[in-house]
Every structure is written in structure tokens, then in C-alpha cells.
Design a binder for these strands. Sequence first.
DNA 1: CTAGCTCCGAAGTACTGAGC
DNA 2: GCTCAGTACTTCGGAGCTAG
Length: 285
Amino acid sequence: MTSLTDATTLFVRVVNNLKKGTINFHSPLEEFVIRKCGEDLAYIDNRKDAKNIYGFDLWGNLSIDRLKKQGIKKTLLYSQSQQFPDFLFKVKKQAEGYIGGSLMELKDSKGGNIASFNSTIPTEYKSLEEIDIINGNNLVSKIARVLDGKLAQNESYFKFERRCFYLIRTHKESKKVKVSIVDGSFFETVPKEHLFYQTFLYILRAHLEKKKIKISQQTLKEVEKALSCVTDQTIIASSKILEKASVRPRLRIMAEVHPEGNPIVNFILRLPKVASTLSFNHHPK
DNA sequence: CTAGCTCCGAAGTACTGAGC
DNA sequence: GCTCAGTACTTCGGAGCTAG
């Protein structure tokens, strides 16, 4: 279990600075996090802008030679990796385990609804191990390990379940602008693993209905059981090479969040819905 | 090492239909 | 008609692979 420290720290600092006017409601969200919690971070996805725009160097005084030894290539130092998540907080030691180490994702939205989640399903917890699976590489865990230093050497570091938070701004261009920090658990009303196979089941049922095909309850049960194995989004989302096909179908996972219009508490959310779309890559000869 | 290519997530843009 | 939200589609660009 982790505490809420990371999110509350950020929240308190953001609120204080909004009051003082050192940041304002229309500043880029990443500026909030980098300027107010930079030193507490173990991963920044856009290290290029962190350094060039906000003058923050994630690597602090770590020497380039040492980083190279730990597998951090020079091109990685200040790039925009476009991986999940946007930010990772450093872990702190507590008794035998860890606290802190939260994930922070940013969502900026013109309207009152929260923008869609491209490729990542929002959840309450994620470990570095899961982050690596989502990304299909170990870039994030590699960087976090370096910045968490000694604390990262423990074997449990990789599997430590980290809380997920979302720094969300709605109505960003109007006077109604509102900034909130939302706990990932608000989005995870159905376990992520169920979301995928239930989507496929839904697709199947809709087809059966449309084509007026009747299959037995028994068969449907078996299909459901088989489909329940479909849980790995990297397998779902990769483009597929099919025999004789000149195009490669690519299923993309997106989650659209439907906001509940609550004037006081602004982050009560309805069932997340996974919408997949198909696009095609040309298969080179 | 590096230039050129593929892969694919995320951001940005376009479209569409409902309500006024 | 116009606006806006929801949805669909397109573009961008970093990483990683490979051939030279």
C-alpha cells in the first residue's frame, strides 16, 4: 500500500502557487508538476521541454559517464519519449517496503469532459513491470531505477504497486477552468482485464444479433471463457501480419471517460468505455 | 557510427449529429 | 444557420533495428 503523499504534496503546492500567482490556471499542466515537484520525480517523459523551457534537469548532478554505464544513452537524456506515464515520483522507504512512487498523467481538455486515454487504460495501481508491458520496452523503468538510486536495488522495486493519479484541467480556455487531481481508482470501476474481453464479447453479441444468428448458451459460455484470456493490450494493439493480406490491421485501444456533471465534486465518473478503432498500415513489399 | 527505415503511442485535427 | 460534444481519423516524432 502506498500513501497519498505524492498527490497531496503536488495539490497543496499547486493551490498555494495559484493563490500567490506564481503559476496561473492557464499555464501548461506540465509546468505545474515540473516547477513544483521536479526534485521529487524519478521520471519525466518530456525531458527536452523540462530542460529547455522550464530549466529543470532531471539528471541533476549525475555524470554522463555514470549514466552511460547504467544504460542511459546520450540521446535519451533530453528527449520526449512519448511513453506512458508523463511523470513518476521517486519512491521513499517505509519499513520493509516503499511509499510514494506514484504515476502522474496529465489531461488537458477544452470542454467539460475529460479527454480520451490513448492506449492506456486508467487504473488504481500500476507497477513498473506493468508500465514496461504497456510500453513494450523498459525505458521508463530504466530511467526510474537510476533516479531512485539505492532504493531501486531491492528486488521488490520492480513489482511495487504504484498509485496512479491524473492531473486534469477542464474548460481550459474559459473562465470555468478547473484543475483537479483524480485518483486512478475513480476510473477503474471494472478491472482492466475484464474490459478487453467484455469489449470483444460485446462485438460478438452485436454481430449475432444483427445477423440474427442463434447460438446456444453453452457455446456462448465457452466463447466467453476463451475470450477471457484476452488481457494483454500490447498483443491486441500491435499491427497484425496476416497471410496474403496486403494491409496489416491494427487495433487501437482508447478509453473515453464520461463525466458526471457534479457541481461540487468534479471528479465522479461513470463507467469507462473502451472504444477500439481500426486503421491500416501499408504492408511494404 | 550513422543514415534510413519501420513501428506505434500520443497529440492534433476533422467530421458529425443534436440542440438551440 | 451556429455551437458544442462526442467520435473518428491523420500526423508527428522517438525508439529501435539494420545495412553499409
